[in-house]
Amino acid sequence: MVSKILKEGVNNNEFRDIDVSEYADLFISTMNGLRSITIKNKDSYQLEKSDLDLIEKRIKNLRGIFITGILKSK
């Protein structure tokens, strides 16, 4: 799914010419790392709403940084 979005952005000339596979892998790996840091030492059944909110906030921020970094200059 991430690769598809990135490829579409490159094809539509919205994103710089990037290695779509590499960037998709980097994005997913970073998201997984953020999740791991947030929920370390907890089982998934022990997560509280505040944990899930923090994960969502961090992923949203990551997405913003990531997309800004690959957007083509206008």
Rank of each mutant, 00 (worst) to 15 (best):
T68I: 00
I59M: 12
L47P: 08
L34A: 05
K40I: 00
D51R: 00
D51C: 03
I28T: 03
I18H: 01
T38N: 12
E48H: 05
D19Q: 03
I39R: 06
S73I: 01
G69L: 03
T68A: 13
N13P: 07
S29A: 11
L62T: 02
N61Y: 12
E22I: 00
K40L: 03
D25W: 01
K74G: 13
D43S: 08
K40Y: 13
V2R: 09
S36Q: 11
K57T: 13
K60T: 14
S3F: 04
L62I: 05
E48N: 04
A24G: 08
R63I: 11
S44L: 12
S44T: 01
L26K: 10
T68D: 15
N13I: 03
T30K: 12
R35P: 04
S44N: 04
L62Q: 11
D17C: 00
I70R: 07
L6K: 11
V10W: 12
I28R: 06
R58A: 01
D17L: 08
V20T: 01
S44K: 13
I67A: 04
K74R: 12
T38M: 09
I70E: 06
I55P: 06
S36D: 09
D43R: 11
N13A: 08
I37G: 14
F15Y: 15
E22N: 10
L26I: 08
F27Y: 15
S50D: 13
N13M: 12
K72C: 02
R63A: 13
D25N: 04
G64H: 09
I65Q: 00
N13S: 12
K74N: 15
L71T: 00
F15I: 02
D43K: 08
I59D: 02
V10I: 12
K42Y: 02
Y45D: 08
I37K: 14
K40A: 09
Y23D: 01
L52R: 10
I28K: 09
F27C: 10
Q46E: 15
G33K: 14
V10Q: 08
K72D: 05
I67D: 05
L34K: 10
K49P: 06
K40R: 14
E22D: 09
I70L: 05
N13Y: 14
E8R: 11
S36I: 01
S44R: 07
L52D: 02
S73N: 10
I5C: 13
K49W: 03
E14W: 08
Y23S: 00
S50C: 01
I70C: 07
N61T: 02
R35H: 10
N13K: 15
N11S: 10
I65F: 13
K74A: 13
K60L: 14
N61V: 03
M1F: 03
I18M: 04
I37T: 06
L62N: 08
G9R: 04
N12A: 15
I70Y: 04
L6I: 05
G9C: 06
E48Y: 00
R16T: 07
S44I: 04
S44V: 03
F66S: 07
K49S: 13
